[in-house]
Each structure stands twice: as structure tokens, then as C-alpha cells.
């Protein structure tokens, strides 16, 4: 196994495209190293993208934030402006594994690992994040919900790398949240995850809403029905119930060691309700931290 640590994204794409064997991108490594250790993967080269400045920085302007794909969860948490704008996204990234894992794990890695249960992905989707992709054919942008197409399957072509994510600026009366269900309080993979972002007008009527679910299908889902159930309402109990019902209806989970199908569908509704409420509180200027 070779190790490369190029300093430009173009060089990284070149290495990735040119590799005859099996090449893997190394960001935080918290999934990749485990998969190598347990013989799930046996790459011929790992390409460390952390020496590429664009993957390691967070920038912001009036339009929003650009977050490097190899920025760690711990670093996101230390970025006050991002935390104030998208607390749900920052919290989601800081639910991945332990404090130790959050010191390494990245948004790019969490998405490109290709697990339907990745915590940060529903939060990114809810926030309307776009992945900035560079490859041999140049640059392109893809909505995060379109990046993963199945378990361990991505819409990236050979040689393509996600350099960064863009998220919009926080709308005036906007709020986001991410909650997940796990059997313990920490250290588990999500049995169900739910990200919500919504926007209100001055009268408190919902003008936009996005709800995304993790671990209930072969990939994280953007549940458009749930968003529609909220838009145009005051996000009252009936609207929240309707959105929660839409969330449960969108689930197509499996029975596995982490939860049953029935349990996931039921809890998706519960989590949808709780996450909408938290996002709503934030949109209304009430702060509320989660653990």
C-alpha cells in the first residue's frame, strides 16, 4: 500500500484517476483505517487530501459558508459563526463516534464512506448543502442528497474528489437541528437519524422546510413530503404530526443488528417530530443544546 499526500487538488485527482489498482482518499481515516485493518478494503494507494488547503479551511461570505471536506468535527465546533448559523449540522458532525474520532472525522469522509447511517449527511441535506467536486473533467457541484446513490455507492466518477461543501447563510428566521436514536448515549451508529432545517416569515409561517432521514433506507433520504407538510403552516402540532407521518412513510429500512424495520419506521416519526420542534425553537430564537 502506497501513501501519497499531494498539495494540490489537481494532483490528487490525477493520482486517483491514474491508479490502476484500488485507490482510496484519506481524510480523517476513521472509517478507512478500520476497513483496511479488518480486511474489508485492501487499497493499493491511499491519497491523503489533508495537505490541500481548500479541504482544510472554512470560509464565509454573505452567501454562506464553504467548509473544506477534510475539516474535522472538532474544528467545526470551534467555528463560532458556523455553529451559530447551523447548530444542527455542527452537532451532527460531533455525534460521530467519540471525542477522539471527532478530532479526525470529516464531513467529506462521513459522506464518501457511503453509509446510510452517517450522522452529518442528513444535517447537510437539510441545510441544503452542495458538494464541490473536482475531477479530471473539471469542477462541478452536486446537491448532497444526490452524492450517495446506495450503500457504499457514490455518484462520483473515477478521479473525482469532494473538495468542500457550501451551505447558505442562515435565513433570518431559520433554524436547523439533527437528532438521532441510538441504544446508548454515545458511541453507537444511528439507528435512525433526522435532520431538519426550516425557515419562517415574520408572522411565523413556514416558508421553506427540508427534512432528511438517515439509516432508514439504502441512502440518506430527503423527504420532500415532510417539508411540504410544514410549508405554509405555523408549524403547529397538526403540521408536525403530518410531517412526522410523512417521515415514517418514506422509510424503507431493514432489520439488522442495530434495530428492526418496525422500530426504525416508528422511531423515524418520533424523531421527526422532536427534530422539527427543536429546529422551530431555534428559528424562533430559542436556543437549545442537545446531547
Amino acid at each position: 500500500m502506497r501513501y501519497e499526500a499531494p498539495e494540490t487538488i489537481e494532483k490528487a485527482c490525477q493520482l486517483l484517476a491514474a491508479e490502476a489498482g484500488h485507490a482510496r482518499v484519506l481524510a480523517g481515516g476513521t472509517d478507512l483505517l478500520v476497513q483496511i485493518k479488518t480486511d474489508v478494503l485492501d487499497p493499493s494507494v491511499v491519497i491523503d487530501i489533508k495537505k490541500i488547503a481548500a479541504t482544510r479551511t472554512i470560509t464565509s461570505d454573505a452567501a454562506g459558508f464553504k467548509i473544506g471536506a477534510a475539516v474535522t468535527g472538532a474544528e467545526l465546533k470551534e467555528h463560532d459563526a458556523l455553529k451559530a448559523a447551523w447548530p444542527g449540522l455542527v452537532e451532527a458532525a460531533n455525534l460521530i463516534g467519540s471525542t477522539q474520532v471527532q478530532g479526525r472525522a470529516t464531513l467529506g469522509g462521513n459522506l464518501c464512506n457511503g453509509s446510510p447511517a452517517a450522522d452529518s449527511v442528513p444535517a447537510l441535506i437539510a441545510a441544503g448543502a452542495k458538494a464541490q467536486i473536482v475531477g479530471p473533467e473539471g469542477r462541478r457541484e452536486l446537491a448532497v442528497e444526490d452524492v450517495m446513490i446506495g450503500v457504499r455507492k457514490l455518484a462520483l466518477t473515477k478521479g473525482e474528489i469532494i473538495v468542500s461543501f457550501t451551505v447558505p447563510a442562515r435565513p433570518k428566521h431559520g433554524g436547523d437541528a439533527y437528532l438521532r436514536f441510538i441504544p446508548r448515549t454515545e458511541m453507537d451508529i444511528a439507528v435512525v437519524g433526522c435532520g431538519v432545517a426550516l425557515e419562517l416569515d415574520a408572522s411565523g409561517t413556514c416558508t421553506a422546510a427540508r427534512l432528511s432521514l438517515g439509516a432508514v433506507a439504502e441512502r440518506p433520504l430527503l423527504v420532500a413530503e415532510a417539508g411540504r407538510a410544514l410549508v405554509g403552516t405555523k408549524v403547529d402540532a397538526a403540521a408536525i404530526e403530518a410531517a412526522a407521518a410523512a417521515a415514517s412513510a418514506a422509510c424503507r429500512p431493514i432489520d439488522d443488528k442495530r434495530g428492526t424495520k418496525v422500530f426504525r419506521i416508528q422511531v423515524a416519526g418520533v424523531l421527526a417530530r422532536r427534530t422539527i420542534q427543536l429546529a422551530l425553537d431555534r428559528a424562533n430564537g430559542k436556543t437549545g443544546a442537545t446531547h
Binding site: G29, T30, A74, Q100, G103
Partner: peptide
């Protein structure tokens, strides 16, 4: 920064 040394390459 706190990390797991098993999840980082020596290089």
C-alpha cells in the same frame, strides 16, 4: 487534539 492513535497512520 485528542485522537485515537489506532485511527491514524504513522506517516
Amino acid at each position: 487534539r485528542l485522537v485515537c492513535s489506532c485511527l491514524m497512520l504513522g506517516v
